[in-house]
Design a binder for these strands. Structure first.
Lengths: 219, 219
DNA sequence: CGAATTCATTAGTCAAAGCTAATAATAATT
DNA sequence: AATTATTATTAGCTTTGACTAATGAATTCG
């Protein structure tokens, strides 16, 4: 069985890989708020347990086994967040920290019951998929907004990262899941994008932001 | 802030004291499933933190501060058990182990919300009091069944310990909280007691059992 | 009462998971 | 290409919380 510490490493590896693709020791140590040597030594232990592929000075990658275990933790995290908000009426600002703790609880029945009470959800309120009981993550076939073309109309399906800064950014612009967005133009200069949606007209979004927004094409 | 380990020591000290009165190192180490030297050294640390009174070779006692902290943990444990059973419809056989984990979660709002959803209960389903927000335990003025006299009629109000063996014992005899019990006789020989209740007639209970049953006298 | 038994403590070891300081490998810049 | 900067690793130390083996108190029993 994995320790709480190991679970946190796996989760961080999984999340960083999802956002940034590659994971290096620096990123991981920032994410976990630990010093680099600490991370190096732990990663080696995870490698011995066949949870990560590790070669000195190379990027870190989860093994299939590692992905599965990480998926299971993220499943528990996302189910917990939904449960806390939907069933316990706690505020979104509170639930993340609580879910970070509850996700480590060892009890299959507990999470199965949550799943049942929530009606077996497939995605969480950020549009992120909830991994299945085997830790498998099925991302629907979404596109990054940054990969779309001018003239297309798309529906906002998910946000890739859920830092509070980014969520505030979206909030300030009245952007929410399900929103229909019409792409007016893409600036060749910096890949920023000009869109219409709701009552707003000719809003500009940076490429950085667009890379974190997943959309479904209409049609 | 106390570590998870420390919290478990405090809770065990509290529970043993409640059941057995005095706590010695042997009992505590059995309860925590640790070796005695481990317990001795931890208890000394707790003493430095002013959580227990410690003198070599003397029984262990929680300080007021220690009682308060233990009470807060037990509050979280009991609220959690009730929440899991009443609101999540989990079985009693499952909830203890889950509550043992959830009781360590750091989040005032989480437990306040549980309390609210449960309607601010004062006792748990075993009749044990739920400590208040300051960790204070208010046992209602119950009597041990073993301290009652022949001829009295009493109502079963609480069970002091909740080991599964004891609960099964009670179950097998169709005894439950709220039950009216008429005391027919007390054997001077071994202090065992003869009672009538429900459809049962002249059942005998040992003194050991009677010491763990709290009753309210009918007035 | 003295011997045996039980209970508790001391001393020393170990693993997990963190740290700092020093060093080595890789990448970037001039 | 050489230097500098960044990134990663090694070596060695620390704390927490466990353990075993040996020893010292307290209690019980013949």
């Amino acid at each position: 069985m994995n320790s709480l510490t190991e679970e946190n490493y796996l989760k961080a590896l999984f999340n960083i890989a999802n956002i940034a693709g590659e994971v290096n020791v620096t990123e991981l140590s920032k994410n976990l708020d630990l010093k680099m040597p600490t991370v190096t030594s732990m990663v080696k232990k995870l490698a011995e347990k066949k949870l990560v592929h590790y070669e000195s000075y190379k990027p870190l990658r989860l093994t299939e086994k590692g992905k599965r275990e990480a998926g299971l933790i993220i499943r528990k995290h996302r189910l917990t967040e939904m449960f806390l908000v939907d069933k316990m009426k706690l505020g979104w600002e509170d639930v993340h920290d609580i879910a970070e703790q509850i996700e480590h609880i060892k009890s299959p029945v507990f999470f199965e019951k949550m799943d049942e009470l929530l009606g077996y959800p497939k995605v969480d309120p950020h549009g992120s998929p909830i991994p299945d009981k085997n830790g498998k993550v099925v991302w629907k076939d979404y596109n990054k907004l940054s990969d779309c073309n001018a003239g297309e109309t798309v529906k906002l399906a998910a946000v890739i990262n859920t830092s509070s800064e980014f969520l505030k950014f979206l909030n300030a612009r009245e952007m929410h899941l399900g929103l229909r967005i019409k792409i007016k133009a893409i600036e060749p200069f910096d890949k920023s994008i000009v869109i219409n949606y709701g009552k707003r007209h000719a809003e500009t979004l940076s490429n950085v932001a667009c890379e974190r927004l997943l959309v479904e094409k209409e049609g």
